Simulated assay, not measured.
Amino acid sequence: MSDNLILYTNPQSRGCIVRWMLEELGVPYRTEVLEYGEAMKAADYLSLNPMGKVPTLVHGDRIITECAAICVYLAEVFADSDLAPKSDDERARYYRWMFFAAGPMESAIVNKNIFGEDAGKDKQEMLGYGTYQLALDALSSVIKSSAYIVGDRFTAADVYIGAQLGWGLQFGTIEKREEFQEYVSRLSQREAFQRAHALDQALLKEVDEA
């Protein structure tokens, strides 16, 4: 464990994405588990994350929130991990699809599953994703085009996008397209993913028994 790198999380949150990223890096870190409710809204935690949500990563004197931002930050700071893009071609795909998934894709999934239908045609131009199907088709295009987001090499973009797709497939918020299932299955075989999953499952059991 390390007090220089602290992950504030809950095993039933997007903190699982950051856990996976940290396990891919193989660096020491400490985990602080927060329960939903008062713990996340306490003044000391709000000083770290004014949204009162997890995850939050504290790295020395630096505070980083938002999963995509945390993944990008860690990949760049721990450059020896080779999880950041190396060329301009990789960089273009990496940032394009990382932030597509964090912005339009997540909005499309949330809106579709909360409201049950797309906005009317007169409103679709106002949305960053247009329609749920259009967003899924766009993501399908990159998943089909190569083994990983930037090409033939695993990066932090695969951690973020793979985790989002994995949750979506598990909970039925994303269509079970063959390319999505194959991609998630391949990523779930990674040792770091399995370590992260085991750690969060153990935390979940502790929370349930508390």
Score class of each variant (00 low, 15 high):
D3Q: 07
L7Y: 00
Y8Q: 07
P11I: 13
R14I: 00
L22R: 03
L25W: 00
R30F: 00
R30S: 11
E32L: 11
E32D: 06
K41C: 06
A42D: 10
P55A: 09
V58H: 05
I63C: 09
I64S: 08
E66D: 14
E66I: 10
V77N: 02
A79N: 03
D82H: 13
D82T: 08
A84V: 02
K86S: 10
E90I: 00
F100Q: 12
E106N: 06
S107G: 02
N111Y: 13
N111I: 04
I114P: 02
G116S: 12
G120T: 04
K121G: 14
Y129K: 09
T131E: 09
Y132L: 04
L134G: 09
L134E: 13
A135D: 05
D137C: 08
L139W: 07
L139N: 06
S146G: 10
I149W: 06
T155S: 15
T155D: 13
G168T: 04
G172E: 09
I174L: 12
K176H: 15
F180R: 07
F180P: 02
Y183W: 07
S185V: 02
S185W: 03
R186Q: 14
S188Y: 09
S188E: 15
Q189C: 12
R190W: 05
E191I: 13
A196D: 00
H197L: 14
A198W: 07
L203R: 11
E206R: 13
E209Q: 15
